[in-house]
Amino acid sequence: MQQEKGYNNMACMIKTKNRKAQEEIVGFVLIIVIVSIIFMVFLGIFLRQQPSELQQESREVYQFLESSMEYTTVCAVSYEPDFSKLGELIRECYSGSVCTSGKKACIVLNQTLTEILDSSWKVGPERAVKGYEFNSTYDTNTTQEVLVTISKGECSFNRKGAEYLIPAFPGTIIISFDLCY
C-alpha cells in the first residue's frame, strides 16, 4: 500500500511538472504574440497616416525660371524691334498693355508660356514628372492678384519647385513653378 501511494505521488508529480512546462511554453508564446500584435498595430498606424505634402526647393527649376524669363517674345509694347522679354511681358500683362501687333500682352504671354513649358517639361502618368503648376501673382503688402496660372498633368503630394521674383513697383511679381512627382 505504501508502495502504491509512492507510485501515485510520483505520477502526480510528473503530471504536475508536465502541466507546468506546458503552461510556461504557452506563456512564452503569448508574450511573443502580444509583442507582434503591438508591433503590427504601430506599423498599421504609421502606414495609414496621410503623407504630408513634400515640397522641395529645386535649383534646376530656379535656373529654368531665371533663363525662361529672359526669352524674347514676339510682343513689342512700345515699338518694334523693342520686343519684350517674358519677365517684362508678365509686367505688361498686369498693366493691361497691348502689343504693336494688336494682340493683348496677356494672350501672347499665355501662348508663349504654354509653348515653353510644353517644350521643356514632358509630363504624363507614365513619366517621372507627373505634372506641373505654373503660377504668377502680383503681390503688394495688402493685395495678391493672380496673373497667370498654367497647369498640366496631375499634382499630388510630392513636389519640387522654385520661386522667381520680378520687381514691379509698388509690389512684386512672384513666379512659382512646381514639378509634381
Binding site: S68, E70, Y71, T72, E80, P81, F83
Partner: peptide
C-alpha cells in the same frame, strides 16, 4: 544679336 529688320538682341531658352 539679330539683324532681321534692324539690330536687336534675341534670347531663347536652351
Amino acid at each position: 544679336h539679330e539683324f532681321a529688320k534692324s539690330s536687336y538682341v534675341r534670347c531663347e531658352l536652351g
